[in-house]
Design a protein around this nucleic acid. Structure first.
Length: 306
RNA sequence: GGUGCCAUAGCUCAGUUGGUAGAGCAACGGACUGAAAAUCCGUGUGUCCCUGGUUCGAUUCCAGGUGGCACCA
């Protein structure tokens, strides 16, 4: 039997969790989360992880599986998920992936080029260089170490330049020599379902969800990890705004407003990314029947002998 | 009912000595390969309340209307 990974994606707050559970039950399989923040066990309210009840209904993977102290990234996710899928596909013909982390989903579908993990010390020194000398000095260094990438990279984006430099410095080879941009083959079919709805409605859902998170104690949750605010994993909507409040930079009311605004912007960014992918089939969150029909139709095509 | 003030972008407002307009916030569009809920780039989106008048030309001046606010009855 051919194996199929059904990917359910879409902007934050659209209703992926609920529908994912319905699909997993219908197809009698398990869920692999594709959410770069729900993966962290210290974050619960602000990342809108599935409730305890929901987690009991269907087995979930990559929810609360790692710690914010780990240096996690899309490449590690790729390796760990592929290993998990190997196991799952021994038991099931289908698995459901649910989430909105764009790069993580891409890593599963297409793969990420192999290159070394960033050395934290080198990264810190490059960050210090950026802070002290500005972006121009990073650009000059990149021009010397990797002229090819210098010509294609967004020269205003210090994060990209720093990452390229750290690879150059660690390996002695240009960063661009690691970038093959080739698509890795996967031993399973992929069906991508996207959820979207009217933008005003989505904004309303997001705003209401943030209010609920605040009622549920998001401020306290942020307080509990405040001492670790320097971690990349906490550079996250719903937490960094509280940190700014705790630091006295903004009011509590402003923090909540910013969480809403930043969530809306994140949703827009997700929509931009996902709609670029022409393989994704789009539905409204309440079109469960249509989605199941579409998936079954696709699977039956795959199952036909060539 | 009377008097005064106001009506310009989604919101709060500026402005045009008459030549069809611009800030903040919000919003919108885009890029993306190991930090991705990150990082970066770009974009004013407008019946200047309505109807007349004056004028070559009115969002601007005048009159009336409508709506809002304040005060007086």
């Amino acid at each position: 039997m051919p194996k199929t990974l059904i990917i359910l994606t879409g902007p934050t707050g659209i209703g992926k969790t609920k529908l994912g559970i319905s699909l997993a039950k219908y197809f009698n399989t398990e869920i692999v989360s594709a959410d770069s923040r729900q993966i962290f066990k210290e974050l619960r309210i602000g990342t809108a992880v599935p409730s305890g009840k929901e987690l009991n209904e269907v087995k979930h993977h990559f929810i609360h599986s790692h710690s914010i102290a780990e240096n996690y990234n899309a490449s590690k996710y790729e390796a760990e998920v592929l290993a998990l899928l190997d196991e799952l596909f021994k038991k099931y013909d289908k698995a459901i992936m649910v989430g909105g982390s764009m790069l993580y989903i891409d890593a599963i579908c297409k793969g990420i080029d192999i290159m070394p993990d960033a050395d934290p010390e080198i990264r810190e020194s490059l960050k210090a260089k950026f802070k002290n000398e500005g972006i121009e000095s990073l650009r000059l260094q990149l021009k010397k170490l990797d002229p090819d990438y210098y010509n294609t990279v967004d020269l205003k984006n210090h994060t990209r330049i720093i990452h390229a430099l750290e690879i150059c410095l660690m390996t002695g080879k240009p960063y661009s020599s690691f970038r093959t941009n080739s698509k890795k083959e996967r031993p399973f079919h992929i069906i991508k379902i996207g959820l979207n709805c009217d933008r005003n409605m989505l904004h309303q859902r997001i705003n209401q969800r943030v209010d609920k998170m605040v009622e549920a104690g998001l401020e306290k949750e942020a307080k509990n990890v405040y001492h670790l605010k320097h971690l990349n994993s906490l550079n996250t909507v719903g937490y960094r705004e509280w940190f700014a409040f705790f630091d006295g930079e903004i009011s509590r009311k402003k923090a909540i407003e910013l969480i809403k605004r930043n969530s809306r912007r994140y949703a827009r960014k997700q929509i931009t990314w996902f709609t670029k992918d022409t393989d994704t089939m789009w539905f409204e969150p309440d079109q469960e029947k249509e989605i199941i029909n579409t998936i079954e139709k696709q699977i039956s095509v795959h199952e036909k002998p060539d």
